[in-house]
Design a protein around this nucleic acid. Structure first.
Length: 618
DNA sequence: CGTGCGGTCCGT
DNA sequence: ACGGACCGCACG
């Protein structure tokens, strides 16, 4: 997996390092040191810095997965000697006495200053009788806690003044900061993890006076989010792992009519993964999803059928989003070719092709963006991006576009059991399922797309079953049905997992699946949903191939908790194991599960010519 | 509206 | 590995 390293000095130098999730911290630091040296030209010794992940210093002797490190995570490279594993640093122990003021730090934390100003803790007069409960420690005055104490050293004293970050609310001793402060900054202050715009930051002792600047009078001055806090540059915080990224067809748990305000969340849902770009596909694989966003004048939309335009032909040099006119011919390469491959006919990059049987074309998930309303308001949503179901390509051809250059055009036809969102039936469907726009800017229940406090009609039906008060906030729940429960009972090896799952509440099926895939059934090695799962006696699930790799390197131990798993048999035995009960459950939850490695039926598969030699060469 | 600042995946 | 392509988002 790849992790991102950001120097705490504030310099705009990001280093990416490839490490194994099971790697020891000291080895990871070694890798970071050499990568950083190479990138910056400065020499770095691994004794001179530590790595900070979500506010915690990574301790030598631990492994990265002990901290829940995931692919793509960002680490702060902090120029201070690392801590050892078990004991606290001598530095910390000498400060142990600061308990009298400890509660005050916590009280500062939650005493919300309405103006959003920085709160400097200066001795705490209020609320000392009612210390706020910390979720991470026992509130003990002498215990270290990186959540209610200083995020760096964990101490709760205020000898060195504590600052609260105006973005994330975490606490920092002024002297523990990568750039230590000696005076309390005025106005908003953002910590290293939150400041991305130097105009919001306080550097050294110099604070930027923005009160009289031109900027302060512009509308953007009222913008509460720091730059980077919005969606213009948001990265994915999670990836859909319940199906592979080249999966064609619907995404389990996501229904026609679901919409998202931002493309990045469409990407996270698995519906359409590219954060920018209308076609998900590459030159060697059939396309699996597209977005209609009205970017091309040739597009024609009639709802159940539409003509989509390939990408390219526009000169986007010079930081353009979309050039005014097309200035060269589109080619049947990249995404355009992937669409051609999705059509049930051999690829022809000269004349295009017509599917012999359009229903044999591979299914493509289609989304419409509010931007498409410009041209075809009757079928586009008014806000965000909406999933409209599966379509198949009937034919594709090349023709002269409005600017005189060639464009590739694709005729799509709808083929989905769920009704289209613009139909009466579709609207009813959306209403019944309680689908709402997922918008992180407003209150919303997680990533499920279900807005809080918007009980759907059907929640009333269920109200009688609700034995507790807040029926509205628990508008709907998902738990597997009786047949599945029967299968779950058979998976005795994972009884603890399934007990956990049934104790928790999930608003939607996709929430349930996500919890499953991100939780116990996310393989710690490959980060995907477990494939050919092996369940250890310690209750962990790992892909068979990943376990094999791990055993070759680390021996017969569980890659997650490192406990001895020799009781399951020899390495050779283990390499053959698979929890078949779990496979059956997952197959029931996710129809496409395991199709890559499940032994295929003895029937000859239909060949659509998609990958036949004729389609490729020539 | 132009454009700065982004992300991810692909193809080299 | 790295730069280019791409039907984004937000600011000024």
């Amino acid at each position: 997996m790849k992790i991102r390293i950001k120097p705490s000095t504030g310099e705009q130098l990001f280093v990416y390092v490839d490490v194994n999730r099971t790697e020891m911290v000291e080895n990871a630091r070694k890798a970071v040191a050499s990568a950083y040296e190479e990138a910056s030209g400065k020499s770095t010794s691994i004794d001179q810095f530590s790595l900070i992940y979500q506010g915690k210093q990574l301790a030598d002797g631990m492994r990265l997965f002990d901290y829940g490190v995931k692919h793509g995570d960002t680490f702060l490279l902090h120029l201070r000697a690392p801590i050892e594993m078990p004991a606290s640093t001598p530095d910390n122990s000498t400060l142990e006495a600061g308990d009298s003021s400890s509660g005050s730090v916590a009280s500062v934390s939650l005493s919300e200053s309405p103006s959003g100003e920085t709160v400097a803790n200066d001795g705490a007069e209020n609320e000392s009788e009612e210390p706020v409960k910390c979720d991470h420690c026992d509130n003990g005055p002498t215990s270290h806690c990186n959540y209610c104490g200083c995020y760096y050293c964990g101490m709760k004293d205020d000898e060195h003044h504590t600052l609260a970050c105006d973005e994330c609310g975490r606490f920092y001793h002024m002297r523990c900061l990568p750039e230590p402060l000696t005076t309390v900054p005025e106005g908003d202050w953002y910590c290293e993890f939150c400041k991305t715009d130097l105009s919001n930051a306080v550097i050294g002792e110099q604070k930027l006076d923005l009160t009289n600047s031109r900027k302060s009078k512009m509308p953007s001055a009222k913008q509460k989010k720091a730059w980077g806090g919005g969606m213009a540059c948001a990265g994915t915080t999670k990836t859909c792992t319940i199906v592979p990224k080249d999966h064609a067809g619907s995404i389990p748990g996501v229904h026609v009519g679901q919409s998202w305000k931002y493309r990045i969340h469409v990407s996270e849902s698995g519906i359409h993964r590219p954060p920018v770009g209308g076609i998900a596909g590459s030159s060697t694989k059939p396309a699996v999803s597209i977005v209609l966003a009205g970017g091309y004048p040739e597009d024609v939309d009639k709802g159940d059928e539409f003509v989509y335009t390939g990408s390219g032909g526009y000169d986007l040099s010079g930081n353009k989003r979309q050039a005014k006119v097309q200035t060269f011919d589109q080619e049947l390469t990249r995404q355009n070719r992937s669409l051609a491959m999705a059509c049930a006919a051999p690829v022809n990059d000269q004349k295009g092709a017509v599917a012999k049987d359009w229903r044999a074309s591979s299914p493509i998930r289609v989304c419409r963006s509010y931007k498409a309303a410009k041209m075809h308001p009757e079928y586009a949503p008014t806000e965000g991006v909406r999933y409209d179901g599966l379509y198949r390509i009937v034919k594709y051809w090349k023709e002269k576009g409005v600017s005189g250059f060639c464009v590739w055009r694709y005729l799509f036809r709808r083929d989905d059991p769920e009704p289209a969102p613009w139909t009466e039936e579709g609207k009813k469907h959306i209403e019944e399922l309680g689908l709402t726009l997922y918008n992180p800017d407003t209150t919303c229940d997680g990533r499920t797309g279900l807005a809080k406090g918007s009980p759907s009609k059907s929640s009333l039906k269920r109200k009688a079953d609700d034995d507790d008060d807040s029926a509205a906030s628990k508008a709907r729940r998902f738990q597997p049905g009786p047949e599945l429960q029967e299968l779950i009972r058979l998976d005795k090896e994972n009884s603890r997992l399934w007990a956990n799952m049934s104790e928790s509440e999930y608003a939607t099926e996709s929430g349930y699946l996500e919890a499953l895939a991100e939780g116990h059934l996310g393989c710690p090695i490959c980060q995907e949903l477990v494939q050919k799962p092996v369940t250890t006696p310690c209750g962990h699930n790992i892909c068979n191939p990943c376990l094999c790799k791990s055993m070759d390197q680390y021996g017969v131990i569980c890659p997650i908790c490192r406990s001895d798993i020799a009781s399951m048999g020899s390495i050779a035995d283990l390499k053959l194991q698979m929890n078949q009960n779990l496979v059956t459950i997952l197959k029931a939850l996710i129809p496409s599960y395991g199709k890559e490695w499940m032994t295929p039926p003895k029937i000859t598969e239909t060949q659509y010519g998609l990958r036949s030699g004729a389609a490729v060469k020539k």
